[in-house]
Structures are given as C-alpha cells and as structure tokens.
Design a protein around this nucleic acid. Sequence first.
RNA 1: UCCUCGGUAGCUCAAUUGGCUGAGCAAGCGGCUGUUAACCGCAAGGUUGGAGGUUCGAGUCCUCCCCGAGGAGCCA
Length: 470
Amino acid sequence: MKRPHLGKSERDVKNAPRTRSTPLADIIRIEHIARYDGQPVTLQGWLQLKTGKGKLQFLRVRDGTGVIQAVIFQGSVTPELLEAAKRLPLESSLVVTGVVKADPRAPGIPGGYELGVTDLQVVQESAEYPIGPKEHGVEFLMDNRHLWLRSNRQWAILRVRATIIKAMRDWLDDNGFILVDTPILTPSAAEGTTTLFQTDFHGEPAFLAQTGQLYNEANIFAVGKTYCFGPTFRAEKSKTRRHLQEFWMVEPEIAFCKLEDLLEIEEQYVSYIVQITLAERANELKLLERDTTALAKVIAPFPRISYDDAVAMINAAAARGVTVPPNDEPLPAIAWGDDFGAPAETFVASQFDRPVFVHHYPSAIKAFYMEPEPGRAEVCRSADLLAPEGYGEIIGGSERMSDPDVLLAAIDRHGLPRQAYAWYIDLRRYGSAPHSGFGLGVERTVAWICGLDHIRETIAFPRMLNRLNP
RNA sequence: UCCUCGGUAGCUCAAUUGGCUGAGCAAGCGGCUGUUAACCGCAAGGUUGGAGGUUCGAGUCCUCCCCGAGGAGCCA
C-alpha cells in the first residue's frame, strides 16, 4: 500500500495527502513527545523491546530520536492487530498511531509518556534479530556492529559525538579560523616516525595521511589561522583500548603564535567543547551513566606542569609505592629523557581536577619540527594535554621551528630526506613567523566525555588491529 | 612484535581427578489486562575454533595452526 506521507517532516506533514479511512495523526519525533500530551500522534520507528501480559501488550518503540512505550489493550485495536503485535519480531519497522499520555511508569527516552495505540502498521517484519536484551561478548557485538549501533548506549554515544564535533568546528569557525582541508594521499611520511598505510598512486608509493599539520603550516601563511578536520591513519600494531588505526583529528594552526598563546587557546577550546556537550547532551550522558561532576570542573585555565617537574612528581610517587588504576600496578620510576608510559600519564593527570598541560618535553622524544627552547636546546616548546580519569593524552601541540637553518639541521639529524621537505622548508624562507598548532583526537575526547572504557565505541565503524569489518 | 587470558547450542555461561556435554536467554508452540532484560508450561536446539597426538576413553592432557580479548611498546 502506498504511503505518500512516509518520510515527511513534522512541518510539512499537515499538508500531506491522506490515504486511509481512519485519519492519521501528525508524524512526530519521540524527542518532542512532551509537546503532544493528550493528542493523537503517529510515530515511525522500530520495535526495540516487547513485553506483554496476554491481552495487554507493551511495545517499546524507538525512532532514532528517542524511545517510547506503546501500549496495546484488547478492545482498543482489532483482535487481528493485537495478535500481530504479540508475534512481532524485535527490530521490525513500523508506523504506530496512538494517543500520548503522561504516565510516570512509562520507560523510554525521555520517558514519562506512553502511547495508547489505536493503529499499527508493520512496514517490515524483521528476521530473527541476533542482539537480544541480554549480555553479549565484545567479539559478537563487534561482528554485529552494524546492528549494535541501534542499542541505546551506542545511540547515545553517536549523538554525543556529533555534538562534540559540532562544538569543535563551531568554536574555531567563530574565532577566526579558516577551514582548509588537507590531503589524505601523501607522498611521504609527514613526521617520519610512525608506521603508515601504504597505497599505490599510479605506480608510485603513496601513504595515507597521519596528520595534516605540515600542510596547515603552509595554509596559515595564506589565511593566518586555519584548521583541518579529517580522518588520519596509523598502521601501528597498537592493540589497546586507546588506539584506532583510523581516527579523526582536528588540527588548528596559528601564525604569530607562541607556545604560551597556544595553551590559552587550547584551554578555551577544550572548556567550550566540554561545557557545550554537558549542556546539550545531558540526557545522553545520563543514559551512559557518566558522572558529570568531574566534567563540570573543566573550565579554563588548566594547570601547567613542566616535563622536569612531572618527572620529579612521578619519581617521588614511585618511591612511595603509589599504584595506578586500572590494574593498581605500582607506578614505575622513570629517567629524565624517557617518554611517559600509560601509568605515568595516568598518575600525573590524576593529580589535578581538570586537564593538565605537560610542557617542554625533551626534544629527543618529540617530532623534528618542534622549536627548541632558547638557551635550553635539549627541551622543545611543546605541550601535551592530559585528560583526567585516565583518558590520557588528548592533545599534542607545539610551537614550530620558524628558522630555516634550524629546521634543516633537525631534518638532517633525524635522517629525513631534504628533498621531500623542500616545500616545507620553503615556508621558512618567505616571510617566516613564529607559529604554533595542535592536534586534538576526536575519539579520545569522545571516550573521555562519555566515560567509556574503550575507544571502539566512540566511532560507528572502528578500524582496529584485527578489525576491518563490518 | 612481545606478554597474559580465552574459543562448548543463535547469545551468555557451566561441565568434579580424563568418565553419558548442561542451564538461562533468544527463536517455536500454549497461557496471562500494567509489563520494565516480565512470568508460567511444553517442545526443540551440539563436528566443544581447526589439524594431529597420548589414552580403554579427551570439552578437559600434549604439539602446531586459526580467531578474539586485555596489556606493553608507540601514539591522538
């Protein structure tokens, strides 16, 4: 049967032709259910869960914006319809019409309202749905990721992620940053360190970008302040709850900007992202059982600690036998010059109630392009931002080398081919200026704000070591 | 790449010293007018990841392989 009103928005549905003998109500979205208390409405969605007591059936229906309990009483619909509802498989698609009624017993999102069903149309009777309302293992859920996304938790995460990304873009757009997209196919290792995915560019080797930063550094000389926002690729054999092979990153870059200026931008930026998300996605965070009191404190300024002081802090704690979550292993001491392991990072972050900057890392453990500190060349003008609660590094940033000779020496020292970086060196020859930038990892930020224990849930279809499908 | 743990019904798990593979849920059938992962009853569901070996006998022990999970290193 033709249903010309399907897919119409709430705004235009009133003018849509009606083809049924019984008048259909306006098609609305569940997130707006409270506006329609006492009124007849029509919902388009899927059967998420079903319980029943014989001649009384409870259908939990979700429509992508929320979940509501639809109640079917014997007598309020035809016996055939009641019988059809009783045997309707989970995840069947349906169009249901009924009267909205406030009821504190009604579960759902937002909840508190139920639909007294007067009509029900099955669009498609679902095949047996593999994901039940019971516990499932990680492997099974990941194999069924295309279906798992429908569950409440995953739905909430998708919505929070979208808001976080919008906040990331809005703040930059509103503060004079110009979006300039950077290439994904690149001719060589941008930073020369991490493993890249290689592909074939008409017979020449090409690599999937692991950062847009070097291109950003060209773009600031055109537009002053820029950012790129896109997927990046790391072929490392990393197999932890914090790593993806393909992840999204926002990378702002600013001309005439020193490290100290950069940190002020970063703390304003992260504060905005967190506070906007708290305000606009409170329901989703509640569904995720996120304790938001820690997030509420994420307001600039953030504490700053030098690498030197962080090492001292770590070693003092290690000497006291401090242990760190999640495994309560003893915090190992480190030598000056070592990079922080996950326990050290977690410990340092745990000493503060908001994200903390660790600045002036040893140059030897950072990328070649970071500006050395004047008078102390063994450290560079870099800063990482560590998220609280063990979520680790969410930002890596630095002031970039602006002198062509210093940059050339660094490229040689790292054994990188000068020819591949000729254009990058050129930037320092035509009106060079101090400039700085950072990269913020979208998925780690989503994991942190949502309070997730694994990064695989922060993106619809994660690409991980051993996981390319679905 | 390395370390640790795991793979038994569609799903989540159990199976004593090596001794007839067993539950719950889902799916099927029947019942139930306020259920919240409902409940009650009936019936059904198995090449125990794969190959080889030890043994009277292997889900269990040994070897190799495959797959997955957590962690290390590295990073956002």
